[in-house]
Simulated scan of single mutants.
Amino acid sequence: MSTNPRLAELSKAGVSIWLDDLDREFVQSGGLARRVEEFGVVGVTTNPTIFATALSKGEAYAEQVSSLASDGASVDEAILALTTDDVREACDVLLPVYEATDGVDGRVSIEVDPGLAHDTAATVEGAKLLWKTVDRPNLLVKIPATDEGLPAISQVLAQGISVNVTLIFSLDRYRGVLNAFLTGLEQARENGVDISTIHSVASFFVSRLDAEVDKRLDAIGTEEAAALRGKAALANARLAFHAFEEVRATPRWSTLADDGAHLQRPLWASTGVKNPDYSDTMYVTGLVTEGVVNTMPTATLEAFADHGEVEGDTVRGDAAESDAILDDLERLGISYTEVITQLEREGVEKFEKSWSELTDTVKAALDGGPAA
């Protein structure tokens, strides 16, 4: 439990507080352990952008990079070693949380190479390699929710590997993710895997939807359009939770639960506020309900610790109102499908770009040059 009263109240409301940040110095200096104690952080997420930023600093990685270079490691081998070492150390810091929560929290996520996002077989192999290399029970392997990612999610879960499904923007895609999760558990059970050992979260991206929709609303320029600014993302996320509850009420889920399965919890991702006109904690306060995860960048976590408010359950019971918001956007000519398709494409592209930057940084370091 957090020693910060605002974050303690958030935890009490049923929200698992995860940190969307990681670097070696932060872990080794005790920074992560202090976040666990003081801020109630019970999980960590990473992505290629976070790793690219961390490795570009250079100092904390210099000794290992030098050793890898002396051993003749390739760039891919070096990236695997550097990133999985960081994640393994973070897993060890969070192991007491993992044990205290029976595996629900205390999790650290690492992503499969985003360049494989449209290759099912390669994604499965990448996930297996990460799981084997990190070798910690509290790992989550991140797989993007692309068309090709969905069958990969099922196949990886079927082998007993816990998964964080990432880059979910649309309600239809989220329903596909829920189906892939159930399919994976059913296949795992058929394979003789103890499904009570499998955990999963589904990372539903929030703020990027407002960023794109608000831009289109501003272009329309009417009072009606202005009144809808900053409403799409919360409405979309609340409807996603409604879809989650619908699946939880099905006989298909009940059968799995009877065999010890754990729910795939909704995880609110991209919760940093991009518009300075909005409250910097709106994607935390607006998405409070029992049984979800909110992974926050450091700035958002610190903002909530300073002045965030828990205003009761802000998710359940809002389906009709949220539907109306998306309907109003469609009437104004803002296509939900078009926006979501764009965001998914851009999301994969951004991670691919960050992976390329990470590759360039590591290559330069192995070659003995300055960080890219």
Rank of each mutant, 00 (worst) to 15 (best):
T3M: 14
P5H: 12
L7F: 03
L10E: 06
S11V: 02
S11F: 04
K12I: 03
G14I: 02
I17Y: 05
I17V: 10
I17R: 02
D20V: 00
L22K: 05
E25N: 08
G30C: 12
L32G: 09
L32R: 02
R35C: 13
V36E: 05
L55A: 09
E59W: 03
V65D: 04
A69Q: 09
S70L: 12
A73P: 07
E77K: 12
I79E: 10
L80I: 15
A81Q: 14
L82E: 03
V87D: 01
R88Y: 15
A90Q: 05
A90L: 04
D92K: 11
V93W: 06
V93D: 09
L95I: 09
E99W: 12
D102H: 15
G103E: 11
V104A: 15
V108A: 08
P114Y: 11
G115P: 07
L116R: 11
L116I: 09
A121V: 12
A121F: 07
L129C: 09
V134K: 06
R136C: 12
R136M: 13
R136T: 06
P137H: 15
P144H: 03
P144E: 04
A145S: 07
T146M: 03
G149W: 02
Q155E: 14
L157E: 04
A158W: 05
V163D: 09
L167E: 01
F169M: 06
F169K: 06
N179W: 00
G192Q: 10
I195N: 07
S200Q: 04
F205S: 05
R208K: 14
A211H: 13
A211S: 15
A219K: 14
T222L: 09
A227S: 15
G230T: 00
G230R: 07
A240P: 02
A243G: 08
R248C: 11
A257C: 15
D258A: 14
H262G: 12
H262I: 07
P266I: 06
P266R: 01
T271W: 04
N275L: 08
D277V: 10
S279Y: 08
L287M: 04
V288W: 00
E290K: 08
V293I: 11
V293P: 00
M296F: 00
F304C: 08
R316W: 03
D318I: 00
E321F: 12
S322V: 03
D323T: 12
D323K: 14
D328Y: 09
D328C: 06
R331V: 15
G333H: 11
Y336A: 11
E338W: 03
E338F: 03
Q342F: 03
L343T: 05
E344M: 10
R345M: 10
G347E: 03
E349R: 14
E357A: 13
T359Q: 08
D360K: 14
D360A: 13
V362R: 03
K363E: 14
K363T: 13
A364Y: 03
A365T: 08
A365W: 04
G369Q: 14
P370K: 13
A372K: 06
